[in-house]
Nucleic acid binder design. Structure first.
Lengths: 214, 214, 214, 214
DNA sequence: GATGAATGAGGGTTCATTCAT
DNA sequence: TATGAATGAACCCTCATTCAT
């Protein structure tokens, strides 16, 4: 319903304007990183951006639109990365591909760890509010075929659900690691991959077969 | 810093007072479920509880204290449940114990799914704000020994980290399932257990060994 | 649609609260009188009332609710007055009754001339916005029977329309007089009554008959 | 005080400029019609006119200047029309002339009913703000002699007041009719003329004589 | 002249918290 | 102790106006 209000208000024509938009978004990201969702208010963002509130509202019709745009960009980056990884590992065994995915996800989240975490939280909130899936379906569209190769009998809906679970699982483990401080990427990758394979082994296999032993 | 402010103001001795506290907490839970964190404010809680704001502040020194207490109770319930499960499955193989844990976790989250989700989110927020671990360490204290049996060489800190990851992983998968609508508990249990075992297989084994194949 | 937002938020239970409500309304009236609709903002009203904005919003859910309540009270006073006049002149000829009505209307408008004018304007605006008749139909209900006595063949809808026109006509002439400065009530009454009788003579008579000569 | 600011900034010599001014004014009129005074802002007007805000401010020094110019043009049209009507009915009896006036006023208001209403409201507001008579005195100058013929003993000031009342009365009845929906011009003309004659009968006659019977 | 980006004071509304009764 | 009236800082957003390009 209020979905329209989340889209940017206008595409800046002039270069100056485009720069302003970028400045504002970066300021928004920084505020989210340093002050969290609680300290995230339009005045603070505008101030941090060295811009007036009015300018902010020229390009973003509402505070939420800032978060939405940040999420969108994040999702786009992930999507692009996943697509590249998928292409680069085409034809290789599932485990190799998944490892590449996981490595990419870790790199992605670690780039701006706090921002990723906060965006995750806020996306959840927006999802609860708008009943709108914010995790771009495109991401799942990339993931699904990779998994589907293994899941011969699985129906598309189930594959989607599995892809979603994979994302959630990976995010959760990376976030948990980030919470603990500096990340040992090697170990994180190994463990996350283990969980992923364990999950897939259980969910893609016929029900009667038990999961693999430890 | 504001840690003290999160504790209930006083343990009411009188019965009526105790009842009031319960009423307020239940009202808070219901508001969180129906209106989410955005609609969660002290006036609404007091109104829903059929109590004046003044009374609310008599027992809870700040709004956050409501969330804190709700979380604490949730954690306590989990702790108690886990402890019971641990006792009931004492001596049995890890997979059996973990399966029991997972089943319990699912039952727990499904009891009031939306409340669980929202509390998870808010706890994260509080953690970001206060740098205080809100996931009761006690929970981990129950989980750790179960895992530690397998992890002979692991140092205590590592076991703690693993326990934390397990919790995060399980929560993430359950939440993801809840997001999709009605939950098939059988399947969820199987998949979650798979992920858990996969994760543990990877994290408890020496680094040079690869994770199990799918 | 937003009609609900115009009603007072809650009826004050305590005496102090009732007093606050009155103070706020009187302040609102005074602001409208001295600063006009342009200077009419909630902060100013609260300040003039010696009260915080918060208090204002406890009793009035929106700025418009202040205007609505002022209008309602004004309409109620008019209604009451008209009813009394109608009762007092029961059985007397139309002209006498109308004269009494006009005299009452003049007294009413002159009591707080500027407030009356501004409220008229604002009601118009609200009417345009909400498509809701703000001139209490009750007022017309009092006026209609008086006129209907003369209008044997007129259908009820037509009588309503006539009553409405009468109100508009009277208001317009009084407002115009108020605009010019101090009012000669005698003359105003005479002229307004003349217009009223002229209007009624034309509108209540069959179409083929011409209006009376000057 | 701000009177100077209400005049157009410059009379554009070039044709393109003149066209721009017209476009802007028409856009302003349309916004007033469709969005009312609340939705009337310079950005909207400029956008509707397909012009930049900067251009708008090139020709109109302030938002109010738009309204002022619109009012002025409206007044001019009325003036011109009245003058023509006065000329065309020269020498005829008062009732005939007044009927022609009324018919013209109705046609005028019905042409763009909503615009007329809104302008009336805004003029009132400006009058309240600036203490400046916005109803062009010229209009009254046309009306006055027509009436003065009848009012032998009336002093000029009184005639002015009467003319003003006439305008107010006619406007009020036409507006009231427009409020009710589609207008029956025949009936409206008849009734308005009746009111007008009734008013004049009362105000032009010596005080001791009573108004005409219905 | 024209453009549209930028400004920022202004104003509506909320809600955590206090305190007199 | 309970109540609920009162507080006011905070925050979202608008829009008249300016000015660099």
């Amino acid at each position: 319903m209020t979905g329209a209000a989340l889209n940017p208000r206008k595409s800046p024509r002039q270069l100056r304007a485009r720069a302003t938009v970028e400045t504002i978004l970066e300021a928004a990201a920084r505020i989210l990183e340093t002050a969290g969702p609680e300290g995230f208010n339009t005045n603070a963002v505008a101030a941090k951006a060295g811009v007036s509130v009015g300018s902010l509202y020229q390009y973003f019709p509402a505070k939420q639109a800032l978060v939405a745009e940040l999420s969108r960009r994040n999702a786009d980056a992930v999507l692009q990365g996943l697509a590249e990884v998928a292409a680069a590992t085409d034809g290789q065994p599932l485990e190799v591909r998944l490892r590449a995915f996981v490595r990419f996800a870790i790199a992605q989240q670690c780039a701006r760890p706090r921002l990723s975490r906060v965006l995750d939280r806020l996306e959840e909130g927006m999802a609860l509010d708008t009943d709108e899936r914010t995790t771009a379906p495109d991401i799942l569209a990339v993931l699904a075929p990779v998994l589907a190769a293994e899941a011969s009998r699985a129906d598309p809906g189930a594959v989607m659900a599995i892809a979603r679970d994979c994302l959630a699982l990976v995010r959760a483990l990376i976030d948990a690691a980030l919470d603990r401080g500096p990340v040992d990427r090697e170990a994180l990758e190994k463990n996350t991959l283990g969980a992923l394979l364990g999950y897939l082994g259980a969910s893609l296999r016929p029900p009667e077969q038990a999961a693999a032993r430890v």
